[in-house]
């Protein structure tokens, strides 16, 4: 049994690793301009190749952004699901993404109107504030309502309210700003710069490392708070950390790519089925890799399906993610009746 499990974990991680590498390669190679893999390898070795600017200025930052943010998104979803003991919680359904989006939109319109360049850090800070605002509201609601479904409903409502405010801001913004805001508010990995990639890599790396260090108390927390407390877990601190970390991850995604739906819910479940366990120490890295593969894959589709027109990333993630959510709900019902 022990041996079989280890084999399965190894196989799962190998699969995810290969998946990430393959997805990165495909994302870099495929596009309106095809870049052969050989060219990329030689460019990495410092040789000059055709389409070098496309590779280095457009494809690579975008691919890396999808990789980092996808992982962060899946991780944020996993943390929220653990926090609320709710299998369909995620930054998008709980309205945290929308809260972050609203804050960023407000800051962008306000600052751009004064012709101030908005830095990545400022964007993240704004998004974080917005995320915390929504999260605070969800927390208040979670105290008042016991039912899982009601929590989700209240999250969706917060999402709508925040989106409405964002729309309002966009409506009254000037034309140039609207174009900018519109693309971003629909969610997209396009137009990433190296500077942004650096910031997001730093933030996500630190946050994920902290999350990984929490895997032991998280495992105890999963069993229920009372038992975790008995095992010596500082519940208050852990809960606070979970709120901050998941908001931070969600904020980071929204600040750079706008709201991206369903990755946060779907990926943890797919990864869990793949691993056959819910142990955080395995789930945390696996979720990150899974989220990367999922987002890279969806981003690729959004670029090439109707090229040269680009779809918003959420359009594609919803198509693949929503059925997973339905599947999760059906399976849970079956488990309950079994």
């Amino acid at each position: 049994m022990q041996h079989r499990r280890k084999m399965r974990y190894t196989a799962a991680f190998l699969l995810l690793g290969i998946g990430v590498l393959a997805a990165v390669a495909l994302n870099v190679c495929i596009g309106t301009v095809e870049i052969p893999l050989a060219d990329i390898l030689s460019s990495l070795r410092g040789q000059t190749i055709q389409n070098e600017r496309i590779l280095w200025d457009i494809r690579l930052p975008r691919t890396l952004a999808a990789l980092i943010l996808g992982g962060a998104l899946a991780l944020a979803g996993y943390l929220l699901q653990t926090f609320f003991h709710n299998p369909i919680a995620g930054p998008f359904v709980l309205g945290i993404s929308s809260g972050a989006k609203m804050a960023v939109a407000l800051v962008m319109v306000f600052l751009m109107g004064r012709a101030v360049r908005v830095s990545s850090t400022a964007m993240i800070a704004a998004a974080f504030l917005g995320a915390m605002l929504s999260m605070g509201f969800v927390l208040v609601m979670s105290r008042k309502v016991e039912q899982m479904s009601m929590l989700i409903v209240s999250g969706v409502m917060i999402g709508y309210i925040c989106s409405a405010i964002t729309e309002l801001v966009v409506t009254f913004a000037s034309d140039a700003q609207i174009v900018n805001l519109h693309n971003w508010s629909r969610g997209s990995f396009s137009g990433m710069t190296w500077e942004q990639v650096q910031v997001m890599a730093g933030v996500v790396a630190v946050t994920s490392a902290v999350v990984f260090l929490l895997s032991k108390p998280l495992g105890a927390y999963q069993l229920g708070e009372a038992y975790a407390r008995n095992m010596g877990v500082n519940i208050r601190l852990l809960r606070a950390l979970l709120v901050v970390l998941s908001s931070f991850l969600s904020a980071c995604i929204v600040a750079f790519a706008g709201p991206v739906s369903f990755v946060g819910i779907a990926v943890p479940h797919l990864v869990k089925s793949l691993l056959g366990t819910a142990k955080p120490i395995l789930m945390i890295p696996a979720c990150f890799l899974g989220g990367s593969v999922f987002c890279l894959f969806c981003d690729l589709l959004s670029r090439i399906l109707f090229a040269p027109t680009e779809l918003s990333i959420s359009t594609v993630t919803a198509i693949f993610g929503a059925p997973v959510v339905l599947w999760v709900m059906i399976r849970r019902r079956q488990e309950r009746t079994a």
């Binding site: 229920g224 009372a226 008995n230 500082n234 056959g276």
Partner: peptide
């Protein structure tokens, strides 16, 4: 916390939540 958990264990009415365990 650790000292307590090494000395005192509980079986409560709250159900243990498990997933794939």
């Amino acid at each position: 916390g650790t000292q307590l958990s090494q000395n005192m264990a509980v079986v409560l009415t709250e159900k243990l939540r498990t997933e794939l365990m």
